[in-house]
Design a protein around this nucleic acid. Structure first.
Lengths: 322, 322
DNA sequence: ATGAAAGCGCTAACAT
DNA sequence: ATGTTAGCGCTTTCAT
């Protein structure tokens, strides 16, 4: 592989001139530009990112930290962010953190050594202060880490409202609300939004783990004791578990009981019946997150520290209504 | 961040000695070892991977190239490989290639500049000769790129046989076989295996795109004209599309028509009914792939160039039988 | 067993 | 506008 010096020699200039040409900073005469360009083509030269990073202490890599890569929401997010970041010339590293604090810190340490240019954080296991100390451009995606750290997330309060309004428009008067642990802020917001519109709606609330199977078992039990006109599952994975439980009870959807999910992952259109859901606009989240990181790298001002993306209702067959 | 020279100074030795200590090559006295160890602890020193890579022309990163990160099979595979690779001290970069030849070549070029230590290739858009020229340890995952390139994949011929045998055991006499394009070797193998057991079974074959919706439309049309006792969908995504089509026709599964899928992705246990499927053992594929790459890095002999992993039947509710 | 020195490929003052 | 020089943090001969 040719180096910058090979190019310089071939073009009859010094390597600094080539470097300036490459980085488009400093002056380079038109003449030099031409010969350098030709030399690069001739030698099929590509700058070595490693050497570049070592010299500048900045790489062209950004990383996305997620708790579980097999969770479809995160994969869809990863895809969007990867594509966007690629447009800006960055390579995205996807890091699956799992639930171990230690692994996350270790991985971040490694990323720092690689002079990672920026971080998208979709995990939440470490104290915010740890991230703040990092001194790396970063944006929290779909969760608030702290006031200071720029954030792009869905307006979950609005999402909760949308879910509630839809159910009420479907003539529902009592509903079972399946939510994640109250430690999860995003869950709290969804539920708060839901309540904020509830008016005379009767709500029973229950906490479930994220897994499909766990939710199924839980709902099965619930349905044994009591009937509901509708169920609001605050994630689509839970909605699928709920669907399975309802079907196992031989209840019809939406005739006997209506169901609305949350997230908008692809799978909700593959079930029978398809599931009405409050969809997060993942593409937009990805775009904004990347732009936000980009601005930080350019030291531009970030006008809104916390950006909210509105979710939208996707009406399918698990609810009545229009 | 402290450098190797800081450690050397603190330990009262030269940086070469520290380097030798770090890489466990060359001689280092017990005494030196102790003081270096202490210095490292004291300064919380971590070697800079970039600098290391630049000097050695080898990084600690491996990459997995997939055509579509939102395809659950690949995410599950990615998770396994990531975890395995992490055990060996590697960071895995997940690269979503999409369908563009150009992007794949560009990305590989970038990876080379980063002195990528190894490649897991789960795409198939480029001529095998391109990969062979690369001079990077690599393993083809779930597809054969060429004779020369080490491969770990499911024994799809066996998988096809398993599917066929199961259907026959379920009393099926005629079946619709939904397959991917004949350009996909893995599809060909599955189908070949299926036929190899078919005996008196009547088989109708049809080609479908991978997408759930596309398959649904196709199957819907098929079912309009004719009835089948069973359908073999050669991927789970297709199986889900098929399921939807069958249900839309108001046929019962498995009473009116039985269904078997292929891949073993999580989703098949979330549909109603759950789908019987021939499951690829992704964990094992991941483990073997990483070990195979590792061996190449150690210049160990690779006993079997092409490793086959046996798939297993997961019997669920979309088929009759035991 | 250890250190000095050169170099990996690039960037960034600084001088011209 | 361009070249010289000195690193970035590490590895690796080659002496000693």
């Amino acid at each position: 592989m040719p180096t910058i010096r090979d190019v310089a020699k071939e073009a009859g200039v010094s390597s600094s001139t080539v470097s300036r040409y490459l980085n488009k900073n400093g002056y380079v005469s038109e003449e030099a530009k031409k010969s350098i360009h030709a030399a690069i083509e001739l030698l099929r030269y590509r700058p070595n990112e490693m050497a570049r990073s070592l010299a500048t202490k900045k790489s062209q890599m950004v990383a996305l930290l997620v708790p579980d890569i097999t969770n479809p929401f995160f994969t869809e997010l990863a895809k969007e962010i990867e594509e966007q970041a690629y447009q800006y010339g960055f390579t995205m590293i996807l890091c699956n953190i799992g639930n171990e604090h230690e692994k996350e810190k270790q991985i971040i340490e490694q990323l720092q050594q690689q002079y990672i240019a920026g971080l998208f954080i979709a995990t939440k296991q470490i104290e915010a202060s740890y991230y703040e100390k990092l001194q790396i451009p970063m944006v929290a995606v779909d969760r608030v880490l702290s006031e200071k750290i720029p954030t792009v997330k869905t307006n979950h309060f609005l999402g909760g409202q949308i879910a509630c309004q839809h159910l009420m428009a479907c003539g529902v008067e009592n509903v079972l609300c399946i939510r994640a642990s109250s430690e999860e802020d995003v869950a709290n917001e969804r539920i708060a939004g839901f309540y904020s519109c509830a008016q005379t709606l009767q709500i029973e609330e229950v906490i479930s783990a994220y897994e499909v199977e766990a939710t199924k078992i839980l709902v099965l039990e619930k349905l044994q004791n009591r009937t509901y006109e509708a169920i609001f599952a605050s994630s689509d994975a839970m909605a699928i578990g709920t669907l399975k439980a309802i079907q196992q009870m031989n209840l019809r959807i939406p005739e006997d009981i209506q169901l609305i999910g949350y997230d908008g992952i692809r799978m909700t259109e593959w079930t029978t019946p398809t599931i009405t859901t409050v969809a997060q606009q993942i593409t937009q989240i990805g775009q904004r997150a990347v732009r936000c990181l980009w601005k930080q790298m350019q030291n531009e001002d970030i006008l809104e520290r916390h950006q909210l993306v509105a979710p939208i209702l996707i009406k399918r067959n698990s609810t009545k209504g229009e």
